[in-house]
Amino acid sequence: MAKLDGVKVIDMTAGKIEKVAYEGAEYVFTQETPKVDDIIRTDGAWSGTVEEGNFYKCVGLDVDGDAKIVTDRDNVTQHYRKHYEVFRKVAIQDPTIEARVGKLESDVATLKDEQGPTSKFKAGDKVRGKRCGFVYTLKSRRPDRDSYGAGLAWTTEEGAVYGWIGENQIELVDEKMLEVGDYIVPLPSAEKCCVTNSDMLLGKVADKTSAYIEIEVVAHKKEGKVGERYAPVAAKHFRKATVEEIVEAKVAMKPKFNVGHYAKVVGRTYLGNIKTGAVVKITKDADDDGDYKIELLDESDHDFAQASSLEKIDADKAAIIDKWAKIGREVDEYKEGDIVSGPGRLSGKFFAGEVDSVGEVLVVRRLDGGFDTMSASKATLIAPVESRVDRN
């Protein structure tokens, strides 16, 4: 409620208003302390948008007993008693002609508003600002602010920046709350979040508590951010991602390969010639179907694969990974019975022996029957246990 429309002056003495009519009731000037529902006539000195001579309803009192009103910007404010006049409702049996006319005009104005332009929203709707991303609850129509650009105007429960917001500037909010497992994208308001912003292309709700959610980053402009977890974040700064947004974000995060790059096969290949785990080299750019031509490092075979079936690896690590992949193991994956060599951690000397137990530190039985240890990362595999002919 801001400025009251339809207030009629029905009694004035020497230029001073003594009585007014509003919605069929009369209000008389009083010097008493204001009360809630009194009509307040301001002198324009109030903070906020308040014009001199306008009438407002008293909606509350401050600690000093001064009236509080809702200004033309829909913010509640108060001022010293000397900056307003108070008019109090009086009980009357037979309303004056002026009062009846005022009530009739108010009813006509209401009827015109109801029969005015059709709104696509209704009071109580939850809407989101298209540019700011903030969520509002529509309160009431504001016909005096309707415009071609902004559309039909509404006041909001939360108080919009200018006291109103146009229908062309908002969209309905999906009432369904975000749930664990939902893919989400940030709203413009996420730019001010302390943990993430629009650099996150796609996230996933990992957990939730009330109005806050924990986010696992699925796609990000910075590759190093993928997989990070943010908590807690206000859910209002995010919305559920569309199917198109999920696909686009995942495609954007797929590794891009060029001829000469090395990769490890982690999925299906087109011909099936090269199996999962093999190290390959990209020898031809992706074709129209998105398939790259790949070859084994020794050039003994080739195949085709999608980017999703390949895991990019550094060139200087390709040969090492390939050596271990050929025996079906990860790098530095040792087994009991392997023959290894390397510097002993106990003796400090270089020796060879059989692996007795595995871990980050290998326990090795020396050729002389004693035991020593060596770091798995510094050991050299001489013969895997599977290739030893002295064992069954």
Rank of each mutant, 00 (worst) to 15 (best):
T196V: 11
P232L: 05
A190K: 10
G166E: 08
T155D: 11
E223C: 00
P188S: 12
T155F: 02
K240T: 11
E157K: 14
G151P: 13
E223S: 06
D182R: 07
R239C: 06
Y162L: 14
E214Q: 14
H220G: 02
I246K: 14
K236Y: 09
L202M: 10
G159S: 00
D174L: 04
T242N: 04
K222R: 11
S147E: 12
A150N: 14
K192N: 13
D207M: 03
M200V: 15
E191N: 13
V205P: 01
G224T: 04
K192R: 14
A234S: 08
G224R: 07
E216M: 02
W164F: 15
G224S: 09
N168K: 15
P186H: 02
E228W: 07
L202S: 03
L152H: 09
P186L: 05
L178A: 03
H220Y: 05
L178K: 03
L172M: 09
V217S: 00
W164H: 13
E158P: 03
E157R: 08
E191G: 06
I170Y: 08
F238I: 11
V218W: 01
C194T: 12
E171C: 03
Q169S: 13
A231F: 06
A190W: 11
I170F: 08
S147M: 07
D199R: 14
K192T: 12
G163S: 03
L152R: 13
E158R: 07
E167Y: 10
I165N: 09
R239Y: 12
A234R: 06
E191F: 10
V173C: 07
T155C: 06
K250N: 12
E158Y: 07
P232Q: 06
I213Y: 01
I213L: 10
M177W: 02
H220F: 02
R239K: 15
T156C: 01
V173T: 04
